[in-house]
């Protein structure tokens, strides 16, 4: 029952951060700040959802010692790593492409990239 409570708390934290990421996606003014919201908050929320699954699977592995749950743990951790690495690289690619396509950061106090002229 302790494992169920821990999994419940982790799922609630993950859902809150996912919802905050989408609210930021709808609320922020330009594409770079939207990328901030979507990349960071959604990755963090998904990591917590997967941690809830991992805690649940660890508890079932100790209760039943069914080796299927070991596979669940390892594959979920691999999925979390794939998600984190691909989200970081993908957001870098989107921001670079957006800058190349002529999107200037609209409320910005400084733009060193335009001064460097790359």
């Amino acid at each position: 029952m302790l494992a169920d409570s821990i999994a419940f708390v982790l799922l609630v934290i993950g859902l809150i951060f996912n919802a905050l990421g989408v609210i930021g996606l709808l609320r922020f003014p330009d594409v770079y700040t939207r990328l901030h919201a979507s990349t960071k908050a959604t990755t963090f929320g998904s990591i917590f959802l997967c941690l809830g699954v991992v805690v649940y699977a660890i508890a079932h592995y100790f209760w039943t010692s069914d080796s299927q749950y070991l596979m669940v743990i390892v594959h979920t951790i691999i999925a979390v790593f794939a998600l984190a690495v691909t989200n970081a690289a993908g957001s870098h690619a989107i921001s670079r492409a957006a800058y190349k396509s002529g999107q200037i950061p609209e409320p910005a106090v400084v733009d060193k990239l335009a001064e460097a002229g790359l």
Partner: peptide
């Protein structure tokens, strides 16, 4: 603009991965 749409699609993909992992435990289809 188009980059905004790509950001939205990326977010939906991340959420879909999370939903798949949750559903695998729910239906015990690992």
């Amino acid at each position: 603009t188009n980059p905004d749409r790509v950001v939205a699609v990326d977010t939906i993909n991340t959420l879909t991965v999370a939903v798949l992992i949750l559903l695998s435990v729910l239906y015990e289809q690992f």
